[in-house]
């Protein structure tokens, strides 16, 4: 059984996010920096009057930060909490089976990484948004 994943790109790396937790995608605008927060936390974004915490997805995984001028924020909702993920580009929805992701190298000894998979001829990092939110938000 395959499940749909949203393929996004940030800092030159591809990421797969389970589509069921993705609520919407909005264009990135200026963020309000949160003093003291980890560097990957870009800050707060005003989405129609609600404040959203935005995390630079690729920077969070040490792959360089999102730099595109037309960057997007993917809004994920888990357990009633929202987290925005800043990415350079949003590609497409692709189906993966659980077995398509392998956790191989020590590089992915991170509980927010579900594993590595193939997308065409590129490697894609499957990310657990729920875990990411749990680690980021208090």
């Amino acid at each position: 059984m395959t499940r749909p994943y949203l393929i996004v790109e940030g800092g030159g790396t591809l990421f797969a996010l389970a589509q069921e937790v993705v609520r919407e995608i909005v264009p990135a605008r200026s963020f309000t920096r949160l003093p003291g927060a980890p560097p990957a936390v870009r800050g707060l974004l005003n989405v129609r009057g609600t404040l959203l915490t935005v995390l630079d997805l690729s920077q969070r995984f040490g792959r360089g930060s999102a730099t595109a001028t037309d960057a997007s924020v993917v809004i994920g909702v888990t357990n009633g909490r929202s987290l925005g993920l800043l990415v350079d580009d949003v590609h497409e929805v692709h189906g993966f089976a659980d077995g398509d992701f392998v956790s191989t190298s020590t590089d992915v000894a991170d509980s927010a990484v579900m594993g590595l998979g193939h997308f065409g001829d590129r490697i894609v990092l499957a990310v657990d948004l729920q875990e990411l939110a749990r680690q980021t938000l208090a």
């Binding site: 949160l34 915490t53 680690q135 938000l137």
Partner: peptide
Amino acid sequence: KPFDAVRGAA
């Protein structure tokens, strides 16, 4: 406007 607290933030 409230927002979800971020770990480590002031």
